[in-house]
Computed example of a mutant assay.
Amino acid sequence: MKKNLSILFALIGWFAVLSQLYLALQNRATPVPEALVRFFSYFTILTNTLVASYFTAQTTTNDKISFFNRKGSLSAITVYILVVGIVYQVALRSIWNPEGLQKITDELLHTVIPVLTLVYWYLYEKKNQLTWQLLPAWLTYPAVYLVYIMIRGHFSGFYPYPFVNVAEIGYGQTAINSLGVLLLFVVLSSGLILIKRIF
């Protein structure tokens, strides 16, 4: 059952990421190299790629050597993709209205895959894999991501999300928004640890 779900979820994940890449290149307003850099500057894309890679690893690698089978890795990835889904539903869904393949891809990336990952986590994460000491390490990925988009945005003028667009909302509001998202990471991480420790 676990392997079958991993295969199915990996296929869904790669379809969503590759479909979004196709659409991004088809609708690009910049040269291909810049379009690719911008594509991989979205936390949504990076995290969905991480999720797809995780599920792929569950079907092809040895549990003892796989990076994705380190203690707490499934919970960390689940937190990341849940943030993708929640932030999109709360802050981004209302600002555009995709159609056709873009709508399908959009729902997969921001709704379906977060839910599937949470279900997989509930079924297969082990209680003894989770400790409070893991929480700071889980925050490394989003922290590095924020530093990257701030530095690149400063030099390129491109910020992937409106709530971190320093050019439009300023550093003060960007800092407030970033702290809000960081709090969401902490709350979700703590929640997953508590759920597994209780149940």
Rank of each mutant, 00 (worst) to 15 (best):
I12A: 11
V166P: 08
N97Y: 09
Y120Q: 02
K127Q: 14
Y120K: 02
Q89E: 05
I81T: 04
K127S: 12
K71C: 08
L182P: 01
F40S: 10
S41P: 06
V84Y: 00
N165K: 13
A35R: 06
N177H: 13
I169T: 09
S73E: 13
A29P: 00
P162T: 08
G100Q: 10
T131S: 14
D63E: 14
I149S: 02
F158P: 03
L109F: 03
N27T: 12
I65E: 12
Q89L: 05
S66A: 13
A91I: 09
V112E: 04
P114S: 12
H110A: 06
W132D: 10
K127I: 09
V87T: 13
L109I: 01
E34C: 04
K196M: 05
G170S: 09
G172C: 00
L5G: 09
T131A: 11
Y171N: 10
V119C: 05
N97T: 14
R93N: 10
Y122F: 14
L130C: 05
G153E: 06
M150R: 10
S41A: 13
L74I: 14
V164W: 01
F55D: 05
N27E: 08
L146C: 05
Q129E: 14
L18P: 03
V112T: 09
A52S: 15
V51W: 02
I77N: 00
G72H: 05
V17Q: 05
F163K: 03
Q89K: 04
I12N: 08
E107F: 05
F185C: 00
G191M: 11
T117A: 08
V87H: 00
I195D: 06
V166L: 15
Y120C: 02
N62A: 15
K3V: 13
T47Y: 00
L25I: 15
W138V: 01
L25H: 07
S94Y: 09
K126N: 08
L184Q: 03
L8Q: 08
V166A: 15
E125L: 04
A175C: 09
W121F: 14
K71W: 06
I176H: 04
P98Q: 13
A35D: 07
A167N: 07
V119D: 02
G13F: 01
E107S: 12
G72E: 05
N128Y: 07
T117K: 05
A16F: 01
I77Q: 01
R70C: 03
I176T: 12
